[in-house]
Amino acid sequence: MKRQGPIILAFAIGMLMLIQFFTPAAFFKEAYNTILDWKQVVLGFTFILGTWSLIRYHYIKINRKRENWQYSYVTLAGLAITVLAALIWKTAEGPYPWLFNNVQVPMQSTMFSLLAFFVASASYRAFRARTFHATLLLIAGALVMLGRVPIGSYLSGSIFGVKISLVAISDWVLNVPNAAAKRGIMIGVGLGMTATAIKIILGIEQTYLGKTD
């Protein structure tokens, strides 16, 4: 029953979600919305689980003096200060929004801005024209990039009387081969998702329950 229960539940809820998509019946819509509300409630409780895991992880790290264990004090102190600020001064004003706007947001922005450098290093590696495919990627990438910047619109000319515009080439690369490949991937993804959902609803796939054999 320990494993049968979740399988039956997954089947029942899965079928409910499937049926509600095909019928306008009020019962199914209400059930769907209620389940979505429950999900939010459950999510709220699971954060207790997450916070406990975080505290435990850093407590063990400090206790066993693992590498850079001192930083765990910063994490735990940050957690405690944020929670206390929200509990004492509430979340609308006081230190809580200040911490969010002046500590968390700048740190997140810093991480996000690192992407520019990572894109540069990844592009360098991807564009090294060592193989036919890499050369093709380099040419396509250069054409698209030039076609997307203001100077690209000035870089046009004619070969054998045929007018060639970098913007038009860039648009063609994006709208024809690129869009075709993306759609191909998305069709595969859609089928894969559906197949996985069916496997879960029918109880064929049970790895998410811990069954691995």
Binding site: F47, L49, G50, T51, S53, L54, R56, Y57, I60, Q104, M107, Q108, M111, F112
Partner: peptide
């Protein structure tokens, strides 16, 4: 259990 752990809900905090 400490090897399968929670980090943060923040996207770039997690990264």
């Amino acid at each position: 259990s400490q090897d399968v752990f929670y980090v943060t809900f923040s996207q770039f905090g997690f990264a």
